[in-house]
């Protein structure tokens, strides 16, 4: 993946222009709405898995989708805080759409936002490639998982179950936050869409 993306003509001025702020918010809302559309899938999975007590897997299987807005906005607006803002707003949309999480979504949004942002922070907002994307996936998985240990009581599970959940989440995040995101960014790069 090349580092071509994003408008390069205004390098000197802050990237937090009105336009970029709106752009991040719009992308976040689009993502929020697309995921919201599969809310029933989540519910169905939960219902199917509840009798065997494996409902948390529903959460972990779909985790990657919920964490897509962050890496996407992080890649498109390359500046500190954009991944966080995108992810957080994406979650906030769920709250206003009347999702099933209420205030929980705000907090998940904060946590997921920090998760995806950290990956870009660790790579110094310098590189935007497979490495930083993977860093972001890694931090997202770790941070959100740590959070679920507390919030959803994962810490009370036995180690094998815990490992199972962690791996599921990693795979899901890798597929959606990684592979799908990369494919999207590739489409955008190839099409020069950032120079629109």
């Amino acid at each position: 993946m090349e580092n071509k993306s994003q408008a390069s003509n205004n390098q000197h001025q802050s990237k937090w222009t009105l336009r970029n702020i709106i752009l991040i918010a719009l992308i976040a809302i689009f993502c929020g709405i697309i995921f919201w559309g599969i809310g029933f899938l989540y519910t169905a999975l939960t219902v199917a898995l509840t009798p065997i007590g494996a409902a948390p897997f529903a959460n972990d299987i779909l985790m990657g989708l919920w964490c897509m807005a962050g890496p996407l906005t992080g890649f498109i607006i390359r500046t500190a805080g954009s991944a966080f803002l995108g992810e957080f707003l994406g979650a906030a949309v769920e709250v206003f759409l009347g999702g099933q999480w209420g205030a929980g979504a705000f907090i998940s949004g904060l946590v997921q936002g920090i998760g995806s942002e950290l990956g870009f922070t660790f790579t110094g907002y310098k590189r935007y490639d497979w490495v930083s994307l993977n860093a972001s996936i890694f931090t997202t998985v770790v941070v959100t998982f740590a959070w679920d240990m507390i919030k959803n009581g994962y810490d009370k599970f036995a180690l094998p179950l815990l490992i199972g959940l962690f791996i599921t989440r990693y795979i899901s995040t890798f597929i959606f936050g990684g592979i799908v995101t990369k494919m999207i960014v590739k489409l955008l790069d190839r099409s020069n869409a950032f120079n629109l």
Partner: peptide, 23 residues
């Protein structure tokens, strides 16, 4: 589908366009 990159691609194109118009 939800997992089709092209769906997000078009959504982002619309976002880029709309953000420009709104700004």
């Amino acid at each position: 589908h939800v997992w089709s990159p092209k769906l997000y691609f078009k959504a982002i194109l619309s976002s880029i366009q709309w953000s420009q118009n709104l700004a």
